[in-house]
């Protein structure tokens, strides 16, 4: 498959998924263009993690299609997954292994080893500001540092699309800002496409493309500033769109 600049990095087309009788995703469509930061905004339980599980092929897509740079995840999973880096919501590093060991393990999962990989690990640790911590066990890192290691890990095999599922959950304000700034820098300077799932409004900038997921459905999508045009703020617009969920949670 040849890439064209207008081929989306990620295309989710009419995807539905249910667990037993419960419909977790209902005809969800969204697109992440190449080199763009797209936010997937939704309250807890909206279906964000289910969507990520389908994109990463943890579950098979039963209805609809997911394409990564044109590669259908169901039909050509290897090609699709090679283009994809993921930071999951839960912490997924081996605590008792060192930062470098964790990264080398991940490289091996992508069939990469040797001197080039060691150089790549150095490069990425510098990028995320942890070049001094390579030999330390992950257990000794702070939450924000672990997250940065996970971002470095997700970039090891040079993917062109990065998925982050609630990457800043549980972090203090300073760490959150560092993570958001790092990811935005990657989009700006390296042309990485990013799908950023969150329920935190202040991580979204007015020019970001946003899809709002609520109860398994995309209830709004467009530029953040357009979504917030009729409301006092993006937060207010988002609350209005997902009001019953907020009420339910209270």
């Amino acid at each position: 498959m040849t890439d064209t600049p207008d081929m989306p990095a990620l295309a989710v087309e009419q995807v539905s998924h249910s667990f037993g009788r419960r419909l977790a995703l209902d005809h969800v469509s969204l697109t992440v263009p190449q080199g763009r930061f797209v936010a997937l905004l939704g309250p807890n339980g909206a279906g964000k993690t289910t969507l990520f599980s389908l994109v990463t092929r943890l579950y098979a897509t039963r209805a609809g299609a997911v394409r990564i740079f044109g590669h259908d995840v169901a039909r050509s999973p290897s090609a699709a997954l090679s283009e994809l880096g993921v930071v999951f919501q839960s912490r997924t590093l081996d605590l008792d292994l060192s930062v470098r060991q964790n990264l080398a393990y991940h490289a091996a999962l992508h069939g990469l080893a040797g001197r080039a990989v060691r150089a790549r690990i150095d490069e990425l640790l510098t990028l995320v500001g942890l070049q001094e911590r390579g030999a330390d066990k992950v257990r000794t890192l702070s939450g924000g540092q672990s997250r940065r290691v996970e971002i470095a890990r997700a970039l090891l095999h040079r993917p062109r699309l990065l998925l982050l599922d609630e990457a800043t959950v549980g972090l203090d304000l300073a760490s959150r800002r560092t993570i958001v700034a790092l990811v935005r820098m990657l989009v700006r300077e390296t042309g990485l496409a990013v799908l950023w799932a969150t329920h935190i409004f202040d991580e979204i900038e007015p020019d970001d493309a946003v899809s709002v997921l609520h109860r398994g459905r995309i209830v709004a999508s467009g530029d953040a500033k357009a979504l917030a045009a009729d409301a006092p703020s993006l937060e207010a617009a988002f609350r209005a769109l997902t009001e019953d969920a907020a009420g339910e949670a209270a």
Partner: peptide, 12 residues
């Protein structure tokens, strides 16, 4: 804990 997810995102 989710490290299975990491394993299964391998393209192999």
């Amino acid at each position: 804990v989710g490290s299975m997810r990491v394993l299964l995102t391998s393209p192999f």
